[in-house]
Write a protein that binds this DNA or RNA. Structure first.
Lengths: 354, 354
DNA sequence: TCCGCATCGGGAACCGGTTTCCACCCATGT
DNA sequence: ACATGGGTGGAAACCGGTTCCCGATGCGGA
């Protein structure tokens, strides 16, 4: 027991001052660093600090204007690989820039999202980063816009990361990726292999990310003068189970297609399992492609052809951009590129010649 | 422009008071709720609050003793599926109990872990949850023990979630799962299928989680009167790439084995890919099993036999337990069960009969 | 009509720090 | 010997809230 047994309650700067026989100001000064303090005093204070195991209350410092700044991010579910990647990027860059990170999962509940943003405004967070897509309705835009305004008027700032912009004039920073372009390139690749009936396993109809990918799917067809069969686009919810269910149903209903493009790699994984269960080989019988390039895409069998999205970079850029702002900075809007990564799950159709 | 253009700086309670023509105390009271305030005054104050879009500074409230409590958790890398699951459990339960969540990834850097815990002590976090295994050295134990002490003396508390206890007397709450037991059951299952030479793809030698799983592997052999060949246990680092690399090397070196038990599902995924690359079928030629039961285990082909660890529950319990403490509560130590989930990646050996 | 009590709201102290302002001491220059 | 000034450290104001303490109303009852 070299250390004195402290009483359970944390000690204040005044306790330290008393123990060192100086005033609170002096303690603050030796801890602060800049102000000249005699060596003898400094030593006494440091000793008291060590004896008491004292750490200044960060909240008190914050209110006095010298605290560690905080940055908040909210996402739907940290469990999703692409969310996790963005979160990782955000977290790394934030701590690199000396910020603390507050998280919150909404579980898809917009009400909860709203509450959280309000709390973050109260916490005086330097910025609030909304990660991942959302349902695109007018209420959503209005609500988000109000968040942006109130955050801005509180000296904070809203960042939309992987979520579409709100329209002109909203005080927001948005970091997007080329969602539609990636889908366009991917589906073009599939079509170039000779496929003509490609099933699209999409997400919720009003979800912005799902919409963008679907637009790319359609555009790729039209760019080749093809008119996609509406019966071939199915709506799900971006989960593995949704992919599994949708694929099973498509198979059972006898839908005709030679390739499947899933809106996410998770959906593709579920679809792949359903395909295997039906004794279909990939890409022998059916070609399959995903979207996101989550780390696991390489470990599916066959390795999944998909489009790479720089999720981690997205997160990093979100915080770097927003923390690098000054009051005069115009609203930023970054658009990162995507690219398809060709692996083994898409094959040429027989007609095209092997 | 229905709203007055506020100046950029956030407004204080005194601004609201002035605008409403009352004192700060009154504003605090109408916002606080309990104290009786006349309807007229309340209305005036609320109007001012709305006009100014005022939110009380959470940090100031905190220092006055009425803030939203905060809980911190630190993990190695949110990108790992099992980490993400625990994080999710922690986050959900914490917000359910009205706490804010601070996160930090250490990227495996103990120095960083230390710094972060210190910051959390300064933030007066209600608890700090260390998530996931760690290198088990004496320095580690001493360091962690010091963290526990200093957190405890500051009225906070350290929680070890999925990390082994520190020995008696340390003021810690630990929530573990039966790591060794799971490995024992899994390897027993594999041995029961007739396999006698089972390769173990482990983690870092001093990592507690890796050690536990390896102990289970050895114990299962010995329980059957078998002495495992030391050449069959390989050390890696729990990543997909490590599994891939190790498997390739084992194959190239002509190691003899009929089954592979990977220390994690990620490692198994990498190993599976290597097996496929070598034109070996699973489980036809080689049986394969993983550990963790991450969601993706079902989507590998064949679906992976593995041991289920209740990661999310682990996280939830960690916060529920630590927040449910009183000063008199003895140190808790929970041990959650694991169970093997049999899927399609492990088959009987030929000798055993199909 | 007067007293007492409940209702309401202001002033001030406090939470735990930082920082400005000022007084003091001692060493130096002339 | 005395004015000057740099080095130190204390007192007090401040950051933005909450809450205790008390005084001022207004109302009802005696």
């Amino acid at each position: 027991m070299t250390r004195k047994s402290e009483d359970t309650s944390r000690s204040t700067i005044r306790d330290v001052a008393t123990r060192a026989g100086v005033s609170a100001s002096t303690v603050s000064r030796v801890l602060g660093g800049e102000y000249p303090v005699s060596t003898a005093t400094r030593t006494r204070v440091m000793r008291a600090v060590r004896d008491l195991d004292y750490v200044a209350d960060a909240r008190a410092k914050a209110i006095a204007g010298v605290g560690t700044p905080t940055l908040a991010f909210v996402l739907e579910d940290i469990t999703g690989p692409s969310f996790a990647l963005m979160a990782h990027g955000v977290e790394r860059e934030a701590t690199r820039l000396g910020h603390l990170c507050l998280v919150c999962s909404t579980e898809g509940d917009v009400e909860h999202e709203l509450e959280f943003v309000e709390m973050m405004r109260a916490q005086r967070a330097a910025a609030v980063i909304l990660v991942g897509g959302a349902a695109d309705t007018v209420e959503y835009r209005e609500r988000t816009r109000r968040m942006a305004d109130s955050l801005a008027s509180a000296g904070s700032r809203l960042v939309l990361c992987g979520r579409p912009p709100l329209g002109p004039g909203a005080p927001v920073t948005v970091i997007e990726y080329d969602n539609e372009g990636g889908a366009f390139a991917l589906v073009s690749h599939v079509l170039a292999q000779g496929h003509r009936r490609v099933l699209f396993l999409g997400g919720k109809a009003d979800h912005t990310t799902a919409q963008g990918r679907e637009r790319g799917y359609l555009a790729a067809h039209r760019a080749r003068g093809l008119e996609p069969d509406p019966a071939l686009v199915l709506n799900g919810d971006f989960t593995r189970d949704s992919g599994h269910r949708l694929m099973r149903r498509a198979l059972k209903e006898g839908l005709e297609f030679t390739a499947v493009v899933a809106a996410t790699d998770m959906v593709a994984a579920g679809a792949l399992t359903a395909l295997h269960e039906a004794d279909l080989t990939v890409p022998g019988d059916i070609s399959l492609a995903g979207y996101d390039d989550i780390p696991f895409a390489r470990d599916l069998h066959p390795a999944l052809t998909t489009v790479h999205v720089p999720y981690e970079e997205l997160g990093r850029l979100a915080v770097r951009t927003v923390l690098g702002r000054t009051a005069e900075t115009p609203d930023e809007h970054l658009l990162l590129g995507t690219h398809v990564v060709v692996r083994n799950s898409v094959a040429k159709t027989p007609e095209t010649g092997s």
